[in-house]
Design a binder for these strands. Sequence first.
DNA 1: TAATAAAAAGACTTTTTTATCCTTAATTAA
DNA 2: TTAATTAAGGATAAAAAAGTCTTTTTATTA
Lengths: 148, 148
Amino acid sequence: MLSKACKYAIRSMLYLAIHADGTKKIGVNKIADDLKTPQPFLAKLLQQLQRDKLVSSMKGPKGGFFLDEKNKENSVWDIVMSIDGAAKFDQCFLGLSKCSDENPCPVHSIAFPFKQRILEDFRDKTIVQWAGEIKNSGKVISLKDIEV
Amino acid sequence: MLSKACKYAIRSMLYLAIHADGTKKIGVNKIADDLKTPQPFLAKLLQQLQRDKLVSSMKGPKGGFFLDEKNKENSVWDIVMSIDGAAKFDQCFLGLSKCSDENPCPVHSIAFPFKQRILEDFRDKTIVQWAGEIKNSGKVISLKDIEV
DNA sequence: TAATAAAAAGACTTTTTTATCCTTAATTAA
DNA sequence: TTAATTAAGGATAAAAAAGTCTTTTTATTA
Ligand code: FES
Ligand code: FES
């Protein structure tokens, strides 16, 4: 459903919301290492997000990425739009050219409510809200250092 | 979640269950046309399914594809396994290396039940059952000729 | 001011997925 | 038995996605 690129992007934005702020920026190296994503690829994605004003950055020593107050009020949906584009979620689970209640595919009745539910979460919650929930409820955005 | 290849394969198998039988075989040309899928690509997929004994075929005039009695008792999951492999459904929606209740990603609580629900349907129902439900409930496997 | 650390930018490569083409083999029917 | 029709198989090709590398720019600090 989401591209790898988009998954990396979402996780790194949540990571920044949890670990960084205006006084503590984090470099792409550390982010990539902690999330176990390819470093130069993630750098590209963060550049893209920066261009779309979803993340803030500073060059130079002590530089890195972080979320300013505005960035924090954006939604995960904004990230999806920036990286994958809006179309990703409209698609029919079985590949019909259009997903609709009028002409549902055989799994529409299961797939559509799910898509709606995720979309709602992506659209309606801010990045900080996501970050808060993650901190309070044992959810994880990386399996680094977790016993397998 | 599923590749295009797999979506084409599932829809064409359901198509055959609905429209073909041992006495009426259907050529890849007609299937591709009715489902609006690329013809030579679909041919490849049907070959693959045939090798895995999920579909039957006959060469020559009046030849084509169809499902014999055994084929009809297979599941949609068998199709997924043949084309995409089993791993596709285990994956974490946000790209963690493992999807688990123990270390859930932020959308696991929504995504996992959905995956389970679809998996159940794919595993437990036979192709004929799917075909029956489609015929009885206004579900569609193609939008050809449907007003947009 | 010089050395250094980090992001920005762009070109490039590799891998995967999707799709096409061409030749061969099998079957049917005239 | 010959022509026509259709699947099978194999080799490519094209497109998209994922990933890398190198150079430039900007900021920090010694
Ligand atoms: S029509 Fe297939 S998921 Fe909605
Ligand atoms: S852990 Fe992400 S979907 Fe299960």
